[in-house]
Design a binder for these strands. Structure first.
Lengths: 228, 228, 228, 228
DNA sequence: CATGAATGAGACTTCATTCAT
DNA sequence: CATGAATGAAGTCTCATTCAT
């Protein structure tokens, strides 16, 4: 017949909505980070979240929406990590230093978050290629503005200003690549990584070779920021 | 060539096979580049290659093998493009410059190849994450060696030598990022892009701001290499 | 029957229960009418009833039971609407007229009820196909009896009596179809619709009762067409 | 791993596309007829067609497209069955008779086809409600034109002409209902059924055309009942 | 008692892969 | 050899139903 007799007792804890939502987002971030968007399956997300699939859909919606939620949360986290330590009233150089340090600190502490934001496909077919790309562009624009400000403060000729944009792009790429490199050299500290990036970008290889190095601007008693 | 003998108990030529394989690889590279590994379908590959699916399997094997073949071919192409212009007897700085220029030239001319090699998934779950990552590491190692050589030529203290590795990683990341940035600014030439990278990495932002710039070492009559 | 004791040993007020049940049945009728049995979701029923899903189950049972309850209630309503105005002591013709008028009046005033009873699936697989079909048959039988009575009153030969059954079926179908047609011509009144049906059927029936019959126009040697 | 090793030998006959397509349509018509659109499952269609589900999708597309194809084919069949025997040069009465007979003949021979066309849901939520309804309306319009022609041929006053439309609707409904009634009385022939319909409607119609109308029996002071 | 939270089951659809012609 | 025809195995998403609070 067609008696439609389904459903069976459940033996799971009843958690409040907010908690479950975080659980699912954590699981999803981990799975997306490890498999990539396309290869990730909702089944695995549900399994990792120790919950049934329908709940995943009930709480976070479709796969796309779930991924979007992950991206949004992780992007917010990163943005806040950096934003907290960057004071627009500081000198550009110090702002950059603090931001870079905060970035590496974040990556060190949230490997999966960084994976989801960065290592995901950027191929055109990807549902969020545009979204991710735009987030990245905003970051580049911010850094570009910082560099431009620094350049003008040092009396650079105007024609140089547009150059700050590709430089910002390069800096971001260098940072990402260093973050990857870090994965293979886990003994390094976030601070050491940040110093490397600053040294290279600010001084350049040619200058470094001459024995000069860059040092963080001496805050009060070396108060280099340490974002949570 | 096209004179292929369709039909009968004839002995078949070997050349057609090579041609077919190239056809398929071209199609696969295009599809993988546009869709990404997981979203790409063998159906689309076969369609773009204007061939039936069983032939794709007959010639290049499974999806994984096909993708591997794409990667291999494109990596080889890029490697050769760069390798052709880099003469180990030249000064490291010039080697680097030529290599960087060759890289951007290649990217400009083979968008799809670059996409497959770079923009594809780097997530851990990806069947080729390791393979791609290793290729990248090799490049970084090469550049690292170059930098190390340059550093030693300039009498750098030994303790600096290990630093050349992360610097190489940063350089590669900066290059990749600039290549992405280039997509949004297609009016730029490969040479301009290469110059940007060299300027930044070699001189550093701080130095650039002071008005100094880096110039390609004057080869014989400005023979800046132009990889095919 | 319906007096089933669901739930716990507690004594609960009876009135709220009745009210709730009506609420739910109203909602269910609306939803089933709009979506059809299969496409209707218990979620929507609960939402429209402004009540939680478990309550729907507590009060009316499973989806099938709920639908059955809807059908039963609406069928009763229609039956009562018609039954109230049809007095068995009246002449058959008047009974029919009153019944037909009551029918159209009901349909005009309870679109959803009519939808649930008529426009719902009659496919064999449907859980209630049989139930609905039987209700319909009862109506046809009633009308058939009425026609038979009328025919005999007019002195029709006995052999005609069995014909009243298919005529009743046709009358019912004509009524349903006119009800549908009415949806597209809402300016018509129930009375006008009822008049139409009576005019067509009663005059046809009346003629038949007088012993006149229609014969196919004599084609060449009774060549009534026989489509393959 | 993620070796994606699937697919196994098949042991099924290779049929030409057209044959399989018909097979599938036959199966789908049967399943849709028995279950209704919503309750029908693609699994069952595939099973009845003795084919795998992917083939169903390859040949006929999605469930909606499949259903549309069924409707289209069956509608065409019915239309052609009727169209073949109806010659516009014949007298309206004969056209009607031939059409009605062809209709019942078709229904008798293609139970499933008729089911799919008629017994399917007409609820608003149904994907093809509109389509089916429009087909029905076209039929009604055709018959209406026929009746109108017949009426004018017999010198009916103009004001009667609009009435032919609801009469056509009623005729169609009566026909459908008789077809259903036939299911329970399978001993009847198509011709007998057709005769019944003609007898009822044509005599009714014929009487109306002669200018005679039916009026409600004058109850006490026009006490036409008004059911609550 | 009423509800938010939870789930097994199945529906539609696609894809990598292979055999028979 | 080349291809049309075929399929097992997921994958995404929904729904009827029920328990614990």
């Amino acid at each position: 017949m067609e008696t439609e007799q389904r459903g069976r007792p459940a033996r799971v804890k009843r958690l409040p909505r907010a908690v479950r939502e975080r659980q699912i987002l954590d699981a999803a971030t981990a799975v997306f980070s490890q498999r990539g968007y396309h290869a990730a399956s909702m089944d695995e997300v549900a399994e990792v979240a120790a919950i049934s699939k329908p709940m995943v859909y009930a709480y976070l919606g479709s796969k796309e929406e779930l991924f979007a939620a992950c991206i949004k949360r992780e992007a917010t986290r990163l943005t806040e990590s950096v934003g907290t330590v960057v004071d627009p009233n500081l000198a550009p150089e110090e702002q950059l230093w603090r931001g870079v340090l905060a970035f590496f600190t974040f990556v060190g502490e949230h490997r999966d978050s960084w994976n989801v934001l960065h290592r995901q496909v950027t191929s055109e077919g990807h549902p969020f290629a545009q979204q991710i790309a735009e987030g990245r562009k905003r970051v580049i624009a911010l850094i570009g503005a910082l560099l431009s400000q620094a350049a003008q403060a040092q009396g650079m000729p105007d024609y140089f200003v547009p150059e700050t944009k590709p430089i910002a792009a390069a800096l971001v790429g260098a940072g990402e690549s260093l973050a990857d490199w870090w994965l293979d050299h886990p003994d390094e500290t976030a601070k050491a990584m940040a110093l490397r990036l600053m040294n290279l970008v600010w001084l350049g290889f040619g200058t470094l070779v001459q024995g000069r190095t860059w040092h963080p601007p001496a805050g009060p008693a070396d108060a280099t920021p340490t974002p949570a």
